[in-house]
């Protein structure tokens, strides 16, 4: 089974959610700034690779976990991704689960992500994304727990 956490750029929220799922980030407390910055692929996804699933690891139930940036067309591309699995790869509906992480993002994280990835103001952008994610980290934990329970 494949679990794919999707967001806009594939650099922050989907990375954090998948890192919690795999165990790179704690699921029982809010991580430090350094822990978040050290999560694999955090704030690293260049614009040109949006749409490419980033493999984050395999969890305790052997489910492959990916992070994916879909840009502004998440609804359309989510449908295409599901149809690719069902119609082209001939997989059943339990083989893939795409989770939208964008609703968890605060305006602060969105602004920070745009500054860091879009404008190249990395230092300030990272500061905003990390502190914004820390403020809503409990929601990320709940989302991941819910996904693990459903899959």
């Amino acid at each position: 089974m494949k679990i794919i956490y999707s967001c806009y750029g594939g650099a922050h929220s989907s990375i954090v959610a998948s890192a919690i799922h795999i165990g790179y980030l704690p699921a029982d407390r809010v991580p430090t700034r350094k822990e978040i910055l050290n999560a694999p692929y955090y704030d690293q996804s260049p614009r040109g690779v949006r749409g490419t699933p980033i493999y984050m690891g395999t969890d305790e139930k052997l489910r492959a976990v990916y992070a994916l940036g879909m840009g502004p067309y998440r609804a359309e591309y989510t449908k295409i991704a599901y149809n690719f699995a069902f119609q082209l790869a001939d997989k059943n509906k339990k083989d893939i689960y795409i989770v939208n992480v964008v609703p968890l993002l605060s305006p602060q994280v969105k602004l920070g992500g745009f500054m860091s990835r879009g404008m190249g103001i990395i230092k300030l952008g990272r500061f905003l994304t990390v502190s914004g994610i820390q403020k809503r980290y409990n929601l990320f934990i709940k989302l991941v727990e819910d996904v693990k329970r459903r899959c």
Partner: peptide
Amino acid sequence: YILKNLLRGFSNLY
């Protein structure tokens, strides 16, 4: 380009 990457990425997944 995101659609291209998505299709290529999923072709690799499967």
